[in-house]
Amino acid sequence: MGRIAYVGEGCTGCKICSVACAYAHDRTFGVKAGRIWVVKEEPLTDYPVVCVQCAKPRCQEVCPVAAISRVNDLVLVDENACIGCGACVEACPFGAIILHPAKRIAIKCDLCGGNEPQCVKFCPADVLKLKELAAVAQEKRTKG
C-alpha cells in the first residue's frame, strides 16, 4: 500500500495538499478538514504532516469503541463507529489524526481509498509521494 512520504526538502508551505485532501473527501475546499497539514515557521520552515500508517497504531490502541483498525497496512477510521471522543488525537505522536471541524468525528489519511492520493497529485513542489517504506529507505541509501 505504502504511505504519503515527504522525502527530503522542498515543501513551500502552500497548503494545496490540505485543500486537495479536503476536496477529495468532502467536495468542499478548506484546510482544517484536510487530513494532511503544513507546519510553517519563520523564517525557513515548511513541512507537511500526515499519518504514517503505524504498524502498531496508538490511535487504534486507545480507541474506546474499536473504530480504528489496520487493514492491508492502512490505518482506517470507521466513521459510523467513531464517537468523536478525541482519544486518538491525544494518542497520536505526530498530530496526524484530528476531529473533522464540522462532523466532529476522527479523520486521518486513508490514501484516498485506493484512488490516486490527491495531495500527491496536486503538490506543486512535487515533493509528496505515495511510497512503500522499503522504497523510501532504498532511495535514501542510494542518495547517500
Partner: peptide, 12 residues
C-alpha cells in the same frame, strides 16, 4: 535560502 509560497499557489 528557501522558496516559499502564498496559499494555494503553483508558481511559488
Amino acid at each position: 535560502a528557501k522558496t516559499r509560497s502564498c496559499f494555494g499557489c503553483r508558481i511559488m
